[in-house]
Simulated assay, not measured.
Amino acid sequence: MSDTSPSRRLLILSCSMTKRDGPQYMPARDRYDGPLWRTLRHVDPDEHKAQVAFLSAEYGFRGARSTIENYEARMTPEIVTAMKAGGLGTRWLPPKTLRRVMPSGEHPGMHIASMTEHGRKPFVEVCLVGGALYLDVMQHFVELFQE
């Protein structure tokens, strides 16, 4: 029998076009307000059933407790290509100018490492929820996480 404790399950949701107002920065799981996010907050408010992450055109892949600002951005085929090409080292938010010497933003590798205690507690169950563009990136990242 496999260990399916909450720390060993991962739910990756796409972001939500509907967002809640509030402070400038708030956890993604509280900011997003689409039906799936409302259901998540009702059914598993403390992430006992699964750890939760999200994929966003604006913020990339992050743990759902990461704080985010309110924003408007849609996933596009171009963003999918950029995220997949950058792999686990893709830093998101992408820089707005080419002037930055050091890359800014956070990358999927740092978030998945934190969520799995740097590989000591890998996930045994993963659920992906989102539209086709989001699922394309999510599936690619899960394959890279497994490697």
Rank of each mutant, 00 (worst) to 15 (best):
Gly63Arg: 11
Val129Glu: 10
Gln24Met: 08
Arg65Asp: 12
Glu58His: 13
Val124Ser: 15
Thr81Tyr: 00
Lys49Val: 09
Asp21Gly: 13
Thr97Asn: 10
Glu69Met: 14
Arg62Ser: 09
Phe54Gly: 06
Ala82Val: 03
Leu55Ser: 02
Leu135Gln: 13
Phe123Ile: 09
His42Thr: 03
Val101Ser: 05
Glu125Thr: 14
Val43Glu: 10
Ala132Tyr: 06
Val80Thr: 11
Gly131Arg: 11
Thr97His: 05
Pro27Val: 04
Arg38Ser: 03
Asp136Phe: 01
Phe61Met: 15
Arg38Glu: 08
Arg74Asp: 11
Gly63Thr: 10
Thr18Ser: 12
Thr76Ser: 15
Leu88Gly: 05
Gly22Ala: 08
Pro27Trp: 08
Thr39Ile: 02
Met17Asn: 10
Glu72Lys: 10
Arg62Phe: 09
Met26Glu: 11
Gly87His: 04
Thr97Asp: 02
Glu69Asp: 10
Gln51Ser: 12
Met138Tyr: 07
Ala113Lys: 12
Ile68Lys: 03
His118Ala: 14
Ser16Gly: 05
Arg31Trp: 04
Leu36Pro: 01
Glu69Ala: 12
Arg31Ile: 08
Gly86Arg: 12
Asp44Phe: 09
Val80Tyr: 07
Leu128Asp: 04
Thr18Arg: 14
Trp92Gly: 00
His111Ile: 01
Ser66Tyr: 12
Arg65Gln: 11
Pro45Lys: 12
His42Asn: 02
Ala28Glu: 09
Asp46Lys: 07
His111Val: 04
Ile112Asp: 01
Leu98Pro: 00
Leu93Ser: 08
Thr76Arg: 06
Gly119Trp: 09
Gly130His: 04
Thr116Trp: 07
Thr76Trp: 04
Phe61Lys: 06
Ala82Gln: 10
Trp92Pro: 00
Pro35Phe: 06
Ala64Trp: 09
Pro94Tyr: 05
Met75Gly: 03
Ser104Trp: 03
Thr90Glu: 07
Ala28Cys: 06
Leu88Asn: 03
Thr81Met: 02
Arg38Met: 12
Arg38Ile: 10
Tyr59Thr: 06
Gly89Met: 09
Gly109Phe: 02
Pro103Asp: 09
Asp30Thr: 03
Ala85Gln: 14
Lys49Gly: 04
Val52Tyr: 07
Pro45Gln: 03
Pro95Gly: 02
His48Gln: 14
Tyr32Asn: 08
Leu128Val: 05
Met110Cys: 02
Glu106Leu: 13
Asp21Glu: 13
Phe61His: 11
Pro94Glu: 15
Ala28Lys: 02
Arg20Phe: 08
Pro95Ala: 10
Ala73Arg: 15
Met75Pro: 01
Gln24Cys: 01
Pro108Met: 06
Glu72Leu: 05
Arg20Ser: 15
Phe54His: 05
Leu36Glu: 07
Gly109Asn: 10
Glu106Gln: 13
His118Arg: 13
His111Met: 12
His118Met: 12
Val52Lys: 06
Val43Thr: 08
Val52Gln: 03
Gly22Val: 06
Ala57Met: 07
Arg74Pro: 01
Phe54Trp: 09
Lys84His: 00
Thr90Gly: 00
Pro108Phe: 11
Glu117Ile: 08
Asp33Ala: 15
Phe123Lys: 03
Ser114Tyr: 12
Met138Trp: 11
Val43Pro: 00
Asp46Tyr: 07
Arg100Pro: 00
Asp30Ala: 05
Glu47Arg: 04
Thr18Phe: 01
Leu93Arg: 14
Tyr71Glu: 01
Val80Cys: 14
Tyr32Val: 10
Tyr25Arg: 15
Glu58Asn: 13
Glu117Met: 10
His107Glu: 11
Ser56Cys: 11
Ala113Trp: 03
Pro35Ala: 13
Met102Gly: 00
